[in-house]
Design a protein around this nucleic acid. Sequence first.
DNA 1: TATATTTGTTCCAACGTTTGAACAAAAGTA
DNA 2: TACTTTTGTTCAAACGTTGGAACAAATATA
Lengths: 341, 341
Amino acid sequence: MGTQKKTTIKDIANVLGLTPSAVSKALNNHPRISEKTKVSVQQVAKNLNYQPNHLASALRKGKSNLVGVIIPRANSNFFSAVLQSIEDVLHEKGYNIIISQSYESFEKECRYIDALLFTQVDGIIASMANETTDFSYYEKIKSKGIPLILFDRGENALGVDYIGIDDYKSSHLIVDHLVSQGCKRIAHIAGFSHTRIYKNRIKGYEDALEKHDLPLDDALVYECKLTKQNGREIMEQLLEQPNRPDAVYVAGDYAALGALQVLKEKNISIPDEIAIVGFGNEPFTSLVTPSITTIEQHSTEIGRLTAEAFLRRIEEAAIPPTLNKMILEPELIVRDSSDKK
Amino acid sequence: MGTQKKTTIKDIANVLGLTPSAVSKALNNHPRISEKTKVSVQQVAKNLNYQPNHLASALRKGKSNLVGVIIPRANSNFFSAVLQSIEDVLHEKGYNIIISQSYESFEKECRYIDALLFTQVDGIIASMANETTDFSYYEKIKSKGIPLILFDRGENALGVDYIGIDDYKSSHLIVDHLVSQGCKRIAHIAGFSHTRIYKNRIKGYEDALEKHDLPLDDALVYECKLTKQNGREIMEQLLEQPNRPDAVYVAGDYAALGALQVLKEKNISIPDEIAIVGFGNEPFTSLVTPSITTIEQHSTEIGRLTAEAFLRRIEEAAIPPTLNKMILEPELIVRDSSDKK
DNA sequence: TATATTTGTTCCAACGTTTGAACAAAAGTA
DNA sequence: TACTTTTGTTCAAACGTTGGAACAAATATA
């Protein structure tokens, strides 16, 4: 009991008095195999409880049907939704997915890239860790000649496919909205500007302020890792300034929550004294009081497009080596934290 | 450019005038290979940018070093924490992990089990979907002779290793606490009783009521999928009853949140009129107002133990075929939703 | 010096599947 | 009837690695 020997294609062949190659062809629906043989092979395969050995066929075909996905963490509404969407599309096409969470660590990311390459994945889909500024490991993927697709956290410099939302425009949506609510002094708790998406959000914020003839004040912009704790600390610093902001655009929902909590603790009215806008539409933004205005990133769509980009690269081999960049439209979801009614 | 041929062990052999098997042995640190040869093999391997072909060695060795993990969803604090912990332990030992999310669907779960078996994983770690009542697919794993480890959502009947917390005791902790707050009519929004963990929570709830000489009232117990929406709907039904409860023990945090929202909308004071207790310690339970009393499940510990159980099964082959059940102590985290001060 | 042991390597078969070439038999065309 | 085409199958090699058996050379033991 337990470890009975696994049935192979050879066992089926023996039962039917065929060769293994005939059985293989029958199972793969080869046109030269007779209908009769195919049927009996199927039959025997089922009887013997045959499971094809993926390793052997992957080795022979030079294709593992495994795709590596590297994300900062699965425990985030955005990433898990993208993941689900990628899974749906790729499982459909017979791919299995190896998920690795970098937890924003560059070192882990590198190790996982090595592990995935070692496992002979057919391609890698990734959203970079915040820490990552050195792309040599990603170059390694490219140099192996296997498809690399980036989403959300990407880097154009690599010249690979990228799917994300328009961060620059998101900032405009937010600033426009805050100005329409009568805000005049808008602070920005930003992500680190070495990451493209955060740089774009900062640029969008600055340009939007300029558009509305509002002055740019360096004292109102802070770069951080966008944790809840960062949000708390920076909000406290903002409150100590002689000339307080009347709105804070926070480039991440967790940090926005931290900022919100500080204001609540100090009994500063939201949004009347200070309005808050977050980014990412994490589920809790609609659950807290007041609910937080934020940006929806169309995660399902991003996942689908990412998976499709991968499939295109696989199928079309090395046909279009040009960078394929897809940028989705952001959507502003106005909630209580910025809606003065 | 791009798809240059991959270097194999053979290429290294050619460069050094050795045989492939000597190179293989050198790379695997075989005792019979001279130090000198090992060094030069390493050297050439590095120069040629050699990556061992995992597929080939897995095929030859009959071991893929891949472990399948099936969870209801990654987008949950509990599961993602368990996952991280499993990853940490197994990556350390050279395993890669294939994660599949069942989204509580029995059908998906079955498909993923097949896909994982097909991929020749060395073992499967799973937490069952709520829907799952038919275990034949899990029997299939057992019959293949590969290790199966269950956590949180498991089933003893399968006779496989199981790691979880003491649900029965959790209910006692909760009821004891509510009684100490003066609650006398405690409702229970439960999970489906065909799932072992929810059955145990229900049993614990009933026994704890009895312990405190409180009457059991069937009208106060509802089974559901424990979504936020379920929580809302059942809370509304509870409020319509002539004899309202003064506390609700909800077997999941999301449903607890739904219940909480209904009470807030109807301006029913929490915890004075009705106290709420959830289950799982999801991050949002500390973020909402009022914060929600809940049960911490020691996810990191569960993950570690689960991974270690897997390793034990792999290493000790078929040595101890007995069921190995590990039950951790739950921890009650008292917050505003039940703390009458 | 003859024999036994150790050391370093090669040889070969295997893991399970796939695939193109080869081949015989059947069917179609002249 | 002779020849081409089609159909169904077998043959053999390959994918890259591994590991036991075999073997020769070097070293140790008697």
